[in-house]
């Protein structure tokens, strides 16, 4: 596949995305998912965004902006989401979910979840065996899957009535 520019997200956006992911995917109120997994997540998210056209990139960044700045406000804090503890961030995200701006949370959550749950350990935690990725046998992809195309039921290739 064609390589994309490595960093589509600024350092600051990477940290915002990480803070969001740590809260969204935390399994306890005070502990974020393992650091190695979060590093993989942020790198792969960056690659995902790098492959988007400009409009989709801006859309994602807009949703991330809402999560970063609006969610804390709704929970009574001025400042970025990453300035809060994991528990504080969780409360802020749940406040955003119940607000009229929930569509922005939905947009951001859709993208980060798609990437995060593809980490094998995250997939295992939700019982997703990702079987469909394991079972690819290229030799089964026949060179030609074609049936003859004739007009009006004729089987002669290109025959026309």
């Amino acid at each position: 596949m064609a390589a994309a520019p490595k960093h589509a997200l600024s350092d600051s956006s990477r940290r915002d995305a990480q803070a969001f992911g740590e809260a969204l995917f935390a399994r306890t109120l005070d502990e974020a998912p393992p650091a190695e997994r979060m590093r993989w997540f942020v790198d792969d998210l960056d690659d995902f965004v790098a492959h988007l056209n400009l409009r989709a990139r801006w859309l994602f960044l807009f949703c991330l902006f809402a999560v970063t700045w609006v969610a804390p406000l709704l929970a009574g804090h001025l400042g970025r989401l990453r300035g809060l503890s994991v528990a504080g961030r969780i409360a802020a995200l749940e406040a955003l979910e119940q607000s009229p701006a929930s569509l922005a949370l939905f947009g951001a959550r859709a993208v980060v979840s798609l990437v995060y749950y593809e980490h094998p350990d995250a997939a295992a935690e939700i019982g997703w065996d990702r079987r469909c990725l394991a079972d690819v046998r290229p030799e089964r992809v026949a060179a030609s899957r074609l049936v003859p195309l004739g007009r009006s039921g004729s089987s002669a290739e290109g025959a026309r009535t």
Partner: peptide
């Protein structure tokens, strides 16, 4: 839809969200 998409549409964040995602299968 893939399990990752189901997870994305589950409500909440943190442990409550995680508890729901554990039910995806």
């Amino acid at each position: 839809v893939p399990a990752s998409v189901i997870a994305a549409t589950m409500p909440y964040a943190g442990p409550r969200h995680a508890k729901l995602t554990e039910q995806i299968d």
